[in-house]
Design a protein around this nucleic acid. Structure first.
Length: 350
DNA sequence: AATGATACCAACCGCGTCAGT
DNA sequence: TACTGACGCGGTTGGTATCAT
């Protein structure tokens, strides 16, 4: 038996709020807060249910709300976040200060969906529509029911099997601590990516070409993010700390999950890590170069070019296996972020 | 000017989650 | 452990504005 509607009591008003009701609600909350929404309407002198009051406050009256159209940057961020969060509007809204889940949901349904469709992108899968249709039932990277065991190699870069180890600060990482919705566990020394995130769960980050050129994030960091490194090993920690080869970059997040939103809002330029020892001038044998090798939970494997030596959970590239497949084929499935371009089968920060 | 179609978005509804008992 | 109730989330509805004919 379902819950009784909260607003079926006789005498409670429904429908659009009047200016007078708004004023009563704002005055009350400003003066008293809203410790219990159920009591708010009674104490504020409103003939509304608590739920209606909460909605009106959070979606319309809250003083920290932004009004007006969403900017291009916000729109791009919504698209990217939606590509790996899906219709979890509240989570998406958490990355856009001053915007509500309702507002983003409405904007998605009225603007972005149509825009993506016009661009030939399926707003549900974020895949090119034609490719989606062609691939169904044929490309196992599209069909999550049929794992693919092939190894996808990027470019002609020589790969080796440097280990990507995931560890918590105590030495062993609980996978669900990092990927909030995934309950699977880390497998051996390879970091296993939850299939829900697909190949893009961990983004490969161009940290330079090995010559010491400075990598720059195409988006910016908020919070007190910074990076630190460790010797020859990638460590993904609960505190959102990644340690990369040689130099030092530590990122301190607050939710243990790295995602695009963590980097939006300010500028963050990474110090260039020195090239790995195996890439120094004395070493010309590419076969000896080390690089991380990621193994996807559904059997997908992606070998990573050695210059891609940073990883970020949550992607600015593409969320699904098929998108990563497109990417490795030199097809970039999304509109590019400002300052970021993809050429051939690789990515470059510009 | 009138009418119908479409777009937009505030508000509602019902369910899931979780804390308190 | 089971139950209850408050809150939050995502899907949907319906009223209003705007556009097209």
């Amino acid at each position: 038996m379902g819950r009784q509607p909260c607003c079926d009591k006789v005498g409670l008003k429904k429908g659009p709020w009047t200016a007078e009701e708004d004023k009563k609600l704002v005055d009350f909350i400003v003066n008293n807060g809203h410790c219990c929404w159920r009591t708010v309407p009674k104490l504020a002198g409103l003939l509304r249910c608590g739920k209606s009051c909460r909605l009106r406050w959070t979606n319309y009256l809250r003083p920290d709300l932004k009004r007006g159209l969403l900017s291009d940057t916000e729109e791009k961020l919504i698209i990217d976040l939606h590509s790996h969060l899906g219709n979890r509007w509240a989570k998406i809204a958490a990355h856009l200060p001053g915007r509500t889940d309702n507002e983003i949901k409405n904007y998605w349904n009225t603007h972005i969906k149509k825009k993506l469709s016009r661009m030939g992108i399926d707003p549900l899968t974020h895949l090119p529509i034609a490719d989606t249709h062609l691939s169904v039932g044929k490309n196992p990277l599209v069909s999550t029911a049929e794992p693919c065991n092939e190894v996808v190699e990027l470019n002609n870069v020589e790969f080796s099997s440097a280990k990507l180890e995931a560890m918590s600060t105590s030495g062993s990482l609980n996978h669900s601590d990092v990927f909030e919705d995934d309950k699977s566990s880390v497998e051996t020394s390879n970091y296993t990516i939850p299939s829900r995130f697909g190949c893009d769960a961990v983004s490969l980050f161009n940290a330079g070409d090995g010559t010491g050129s400075s990598p720059t994030l195409p988006f910016a960091g908020k919070r007190d993010n910074c990076w630190e490194s460790n010797e020859s090993m990638l460590l993904l920690r609960k505190e959102a700390k990644v340690e990369v080869e040689a130099t030092a970059m530590t990122m301190h997040g607050d939710d243990g999950l790295w995602e695009l939103g963590d980097f939006v809002g300010s500028s963050l330029t990474l110090e260039p890590p020195p090239p790995p020892a195996s890439m120094s001038s004395s070493s010309s044998n590419s076969a000896t170069k080390t690089s991380p090798e990621l193994k996807w939970v559904n059997g997908h494997e992606v070998a990573v070019p050695h210059h891609m030596d940073m990883i970020i959970a949550g992607s600015f590239l593409a969320p699904y296996e098929a998108n990563a497949q497109l990417w490795t084929q030199g097809i970039y499935p999304f509109p590019p972020w400002e300052g970021f371009s993809v050429t051939s089968s690789s990515s470059h920060i510009i």
